[in-house]
Amino acid sequence: MILHLIGRIGVDGARYQSLEFTGDGVANLSMDDRFTIANMAIEAGAKNGIFPVDEQTLAYLREHGAKPPRVYAADPDAEYTRTVDIDLGALEPTVAFPHLPSNTRPVREAGDVAIDQVVIGSCTNGRISDMRIAAEVLRGHTVAERVRAIVIPATQRIWLQALEEGLLKVFAEAGCVVSPPTCGPCLGGHMGILAQGERCVATTNRNFVGRMGHVKSEVYLASPAVAAASAIAGRITAPETIIGE
């Protein structure tokens, strides 16, 4: 969803502004989904990505031991620079091609892009629901022979939860490497540095020139489901191809 939006408004489409997400669709998004969207709002140049506080938000705060919050809401007559409508029901899995997060297209139109590496996780898409989605796709499958698949839960707590739910076993059996929480390959730090000419499908937040290693390597941004499916197929692939419609 957020890649679709960045594709529409550009990497400076919300520069020095706030992106406020409202509507029926938002109410049905999990906190994890909202975190991913808020995380990526920055890639549209925004100062922040914000959501109305609802029962889900309050439950999350209670669960994480936060003090009862003071709740702010947008005024009913608030003025917005711009409104963008997105029909979540009509959204297709989206991938951002090199070398800008706004260089998006539906996975269906990605063409035949063979890949060398997949990175699932990071601050952008490394929450427990992301781990569950990736495991759902990977369960009973094997990562393509030429692909390195690296799974990075965002925090130690999520790592443990994934262990307890048996997700790490699913990843290991599929042939993935499970990393401790780290920025790691996202910024070309360590473990998963791309060599010249290599391509990676990553659920991270940026795909600039040289971001994950060599100047002549390429990063394609996508959701955990698309990344997991692509790891199995060895090329950019929609999850429906692996798990059926």
Binding site: V11, L187, G188, R206, G210, R211
Partner: peptide
């Protein structure tokens, strides 16, 4: 869109 990754690579 000159990004910070090209200004100073990680």
């Amino acid at each position: 869109n000159v990004d910070t990754d090209v200004i100073i690579p990680a």
